[in-house]
Amino acid sequence: MKEFSGQALFLDRNDINTDEIIPAKYLTENSKEALKPHILEDLHLEGFDAGKDLAGKNIIVTKSNFGCGSSREHAVWVFEVNDINVVIAESFARIFRQNMFNCGMLAIELNKEGINSLFALGNDAVVRVDLQQNQITAENSEGEKKDIPFELNSFDRELVQAGGWLAYADKKY
């Protein structure tokens, strides 16, 4: 299984789409690694600088309908190659969410309240996802701490444990 904890990057907007996560012009690349420097390159967000703000971040926390638009799994791989294996959002676009679990990564949905309480911790928050307890623990540098429970569908959980859909399906079908 992948690593599911680390510093959070907060993206404060709804409907962040796959073109913003990885622009179409990079879809001609033949390897996942080649996508690495282009993460969130076309995301125009007040105060956000993809070149600087991503350093050391391993978890994305964002608002609703994250990953809408194209089916490109590149939008998941570009996170994967940047060691970001978890996205926590109010909601996801279906294909993006499925792509995350298919790659053995986590797309966790929390209600507005849960998302807001993570945002309230501020930019230096460290988030840990405990898959056994179904709980997210987040803490900022001032020692302020939040425990937030989450739900994971049992099939999605199996995909994460199997390391993704290909491994799961190859064994089972």
């Binding site: 194209s70 490109r72 799994e73 294909i95 499925q98 792509n99 298919n102 190859d170 079908y173």
Partner: peptide, 29 residues
């Protein structure tokens, strides 16, 4: 592996866009 696969539902089919891993499993299994 294309989000606008939903187009084909016009024929009374269930047609869905999927990512590359779903496509791989589709091709293989």
């Amino acid at each position: 592996g294309d989000s606008h696969t939903c187009t084909h539902g016009a024929f009374g089919a269930f047609a869905a866009g999927v990512g590359t891993t779903d496509l791989e499993v589709g091709i293989l299994k």
